[in-house]
Simulated scan of single mutants.
Amino acid sequence: MSLMDISKIFSLLQPKEEEDTGCSQELNQAVFRDDEGLLTDLLSQDRYRRCVNLRSGWGVPVTPLRSAASQGHLRCLEVLLAHGAEVDSLDVKAQTPLFTAVAGRHLDCVVALLKAGADPNGSPYNNCSPVLTAARDGDADILRELLRHGADVDVKPKIPDWASNATACRGPLYISACYGHLECFKLLLQHGANPDYNCTDKKMLSRIKQPQTVLEMCLRYGCGPQYIQLLVDFGANVYLPALIIDKTTRQNEAVTLLLKERVCPKPLMSQARLSLWKFLPMENKMCCIDCLDIPKILKDYLNHVS
């Protein structure tokens, strides 16, 4: 048998690229129409199951799972997962299906993907993350699910070390305050977000000449006394911001609150709560408190639930 014949045999054994592309497109079309029955019928055939993780489509080629997640088609998404769809597959933008579900604000799809084992932090190759996206959009329900499944509460934009600047410290806590999402702001603090610097990377902080605290940012952008009070309650260093008191700031309720905190000692209950809070592990602080063998009223107090 000649080498040419061997090559021809091997080429016949390989699946045809056009056929694979066609199968992937049919799967994507079924997802686009949210046709769960058709999708199930297609995936009952071997040739379609082999293509469940292939990308197709115009512009940005995507997998069927990514299409289902971005469009919020839960039934199709569940069928694809049941037939072996890769839960953390990436598109050309390094976005996972979970990231697109968060961006589309499809809570049910987010929950299904997280239960299937999706990485709550998204892809390390993408500059953004699901938590940053949810904090910016003010979607507290999605943010709560991400944090409950172990997402990094102090995640920061992914930029190279040489490009480190003040922007690098603008994590989800900073973003939720800038966009006025108080519920997300509190939720992040409840799950252990750093109340001082919205960045815990000491190497990055050392590269920035004047890193701003979250308190400074809240005062500068007029976030209101609710944000200041939450930061104080969660142990922010009230002496870090350098305040310049003039006629305008004297009338500022947030500044007045901060100045009061600088001269008045914290109540004993507040100090005890902070001490217990710092003793708990960084991840899933609220879940850890819920597991404590103490009355519910004390759990609510420790969790800052009124």
Rank of each mutant, 00 (worst) to 15 (best):
L189V: 15
T200C: 15
N198W: 14
E183T: 06
D196N: 14
A163Q: 03
L205Q: 05
P172N: 11
F185N: 00
I208R: 03
H181I: 02
K186W: 05
W162S: 09
T167D: 08
K186Y: 02
I208C: 00
K202Q: 13
K203Y: 10
H181P: 01
K203Q: 11
L205H: 03
A177R: 01
K186L: 11
A177Q: 05
K203D: 12
M204H: 11
S176K: 00
P195V: 12
F185W: 01
N194P: 15
H191V: 08
A166I: 04
K203V: 12
L205T: 07
L205V: 06
Q212T: 02
G171R: 04
F185D: 03
P172A: 04
N198F: 13
H181Y: 05
I208Q: 04
C178A: 13
T200I: 15
C184R: 04
Y197L: 05
K202N: 09
K209T: 03
N198S: 14
Y197F: 12
R207H: 03
F185S: 07
Q210G: 05
Q190M: 10
K186I: 09
T167G: 13
N198L: 15
F185M: 02
Q212P: 01
C169G: 14
H191K: 14
W162F: 10
A163L: 02
K186P: 07
K186M: 08
R207T: 03
K203C: 08
T167F: 12
M204F: 01
L189N: 15
A193Q: 11
F185C: 00
E183M: 02
F185R: 01
G180S: 03
I175Q: 06
T200F: 15
H191M: 13
P172V: 07
C178S: 13
S176V: 02
L188C: 07
A168D: 08
N194C: 15
K203R: 15
L189C: 09
R207I: 00
L189Q: 14
K209Y: 01
S164P: 01
C169F: 11
Y179C: 06
L187V: 06
S206N: 10
D196R: 14
A193F: 09
L187P: 00
N165Y: 02
N194Y: 12
Q210Y: 10
Y179E: 05
H191R: 15
T200A: 15
Q190W: 07
Y197G: 05
A168F: 09
P211A: 02
Y179H: 07
T200P: 13
G192I: 06
R170A: 12
H191D: 12
W162I: 07
L173S: 03
I208Y: 01
Q190A: 13
H181T: 04
G192W: 05
